[in-house]
Design a protein around this nucleic acid. Structure first.
Lengths: 107, 107
DNA sequence: AAGCATACCTTGTTTTACAAGATCGTTTAA
DNA sequence: TTAAACGATCTTGTAAAACAAGGTATGCTT
């Protein structure tokens, strides 16, 4: 069991939250997640999630020129995405308090 | 995205922690998880996890008579399981503080 | 003996995380 | 001017996880 294996589904919410801070493109998102403390996220993890979130109409994208390199695909939240983020926050609060309760008891 | 879908890997740690509190059998574990706040855990989720944890030698089991119904398989932590639980707690602390940081920023 | 609650397990599906690698555009250095 | 280096995206394939659904067995109660 490694750190990353317990993140399933949670990254989605974190990505929504980071996008909610302000438009980002995938490559940038990877380094932001890293700087927040999620170290082992390759692009092979992130891009499929972005594609899935867009398919679910939680985020939308626009292409913009890069200062160097190919065009960047900037993502922003849709209205549905904002709602989903709020839902995730509630679920996260519930989850984290439940886990904390169990872990404290088990000491 | 539903509540249960973001629990992957985390339940393992919670189950280890509950077993650490004291011997439990699978059926009992299901109701304990429920009372702690995890509502949607069917036995189809729990038994496979118990089998996996035992295969990984994190828990061990003994059969005991039930007051009513078939024999119960009581689980307890192995030494390796205790270590794994400690590791999970560290990972959980790291994960939850990271997620909280991201969620607070994204407001 | 029929039904119910207790208790366990298996099968099959879907989703997820992730490694690995392919592709493409721009800048910079040889 | 060619090629390396970097910025940026996407695809493919694999393994594991979560879960619904269903199956089996035991013992108690009526």
């Amino acid at each position: 069991m490694q750190t990353t294996q317990m993140l399933k589904g949670i990254i989605d919410g974190c990505i929504l939250s980071i996008i909610h801070e302000g438009e980002v493109y995938g490559y940038e998102l990877a380094s932001k997640l890293d700087s927040y403390g999620f170290e082992s996220f390759s692009e092979g993890t992130i891009y499929p999630i972005l594609i899935r979130l867009q398919k679910d109409q939680l985020i939308q994208s626009t292409l913009k020129k890069s200062t160097a390199g190919p065009k960047r695909k900037y993502y922003s939240l849709t209205e549905k995405g904002v709602e989903e983020l709020a839902g995730f926050q509630k679920r996260w609060d519930h989850l984290s308090s439940t886990v904390n309760l169990i872990l404290r008891k088990g000491e």
